[in-house]
Design a protein around this nucleic acid. Structure first.
Lengths: 210, 210
DNA sequence: TAGATTGTTAATCGATTAACAATC
DNA sequence: TAGATTGTTAATCGATTAACAATC
């Protein structure tokens, strides 16, 4: 159905979702693209174009029904489905992600955690058992895992990604500072924190001179 | 000097920096835009355009000297300077960031940490003292702090950002899931983890149907 | 010198914004 | 019905890619 939507649009969807959720919580029933544009600091034109990639959610002369639009965007993002996830690496970052209660609310459920450090094996993070890396393949197969989160250092990440792909994982949320080489049928979403910090550094340095 | 470089270019700089660092570590002396393009999965044309935003780093018939280019991009990104940072929030995410040894190597130094939970005050994260929020303004002024990292929940983030701006902070690395409202002279770099995860979710859902 | 490869201009492509007819 | 606001087409803007003259 909705093939070849640009990543620029996809990147904006969660932000729409957030603002619509806030409006919904405030009890706002309907909103025009113009008013939403003001709140979100965007253009009404872009908002209408973005939404129309997925079908007509609005009504002429009325605007958009907040609750309906919110729920539709949620579905587009796949938030109406359950995602069974595993965590590779149980360091601070892994802990932090496992503790994000909001993830679970949105259908992202951590089913297991793996760590190469034998001393941590057997511990629990928020009810999730830490297992040895050897158990990875079996666990993925037995528990219908469809997403993996890589929070280990870059040195081990490429190898782990290969194993994940080999046992059928199709989505990887990668926090290791490498570009993972996977096939076209595997989706990788990178969070490169140090690159984000360098970007801040650049913009800070260069704004001072303006 | 180098005004109005597009954010698309800036976003790519840290990635160039990473690949050039790896080449340097491997002992590679020079590289052409063509070869770099292959390694990085980009186009030679884009690479040359990007570099030329900042001046001519290459030489016709030769290519680019890896070590020189690496060091120049580092300077452009401000990695040759020290950044004095504070951490707002000492949860798992704060811990994880404070423990990134590579940040310190690149000149990003955590000087202090603040938490509203009185039970944590007085503890240390990697040698950094956790202080009560009341001490924020004084500490910033006395220690030449120029960057702040917000790792507290969204509910408190807007208020804290205001206080940071009021005491002169010009760069905020924001992990709270809100858009901070700050003046034009303050740089905010957002890391919205849940939006990143939703994007992964979208792409995963929609790739299956292809 | 000849070959290689940059720096840079021109062409293309894609994304954003503007405009307006359709319609609630 | 008249006013409001969408859905959508057309215009603009910006970013990427291609081409090539300059030059090491």
């Amino acid at each position: 159905m909705d093939r070849d939507i640009s990543q620029a649009v996809i990147t904006r969807l969660p932000r729409y979702y957030r603002y619509l959720g806030e409006l919904k919580d405030k009890g706002v029933e309907r909103i025009s693209s113009q008013d939403l544009a003001i709140i979100m600091n965007a253009t009404a034109s872009q908002i209408r174009q973005d939404f129309n990639n997925f079908g007509g959610f609005g009504q002429q002369g009325y605007g958009y029904n907040v609750e309906h639009l919110y729920s539709e965007i949620g579905k587009i993002l796949g938030l109406d489905m359950q995602h069974h996830m595993i965590l590779i690496g149980s360091g601070n970052l892994g802990h932090c992600l496992a503790n994000y209660v909001n993830f679970e609310k949105r259908g992202f459920i951590f089913e297991g955690c793996f760590d190469s450090n034998p001393e941590l094996v057997g511990d629990y993070i928020r009810g999730i058992e830490i297992m040895p890396m050897e158990r990875l393949e079996d666990f993925v197969r037995d528990n219908n895992i469809d997403m993996a989160v890589i929070t280990i250092p870059k040195s081990g990440a490429v190898e782990v990604a290969k194993r994940l792909v080999n046992c059928g994982i199709k989505a990887i949320w990668n926090f290791a500072h490498v570009d993972l080489e996977v096939g076209d049928d595997v989706i990788v979403e990178n969070v490169h924190l140090s690159e984000s910090l360098m970007k801040l550094s650049y913009n800070w340095n260069h704004s001072k001179k303006a």
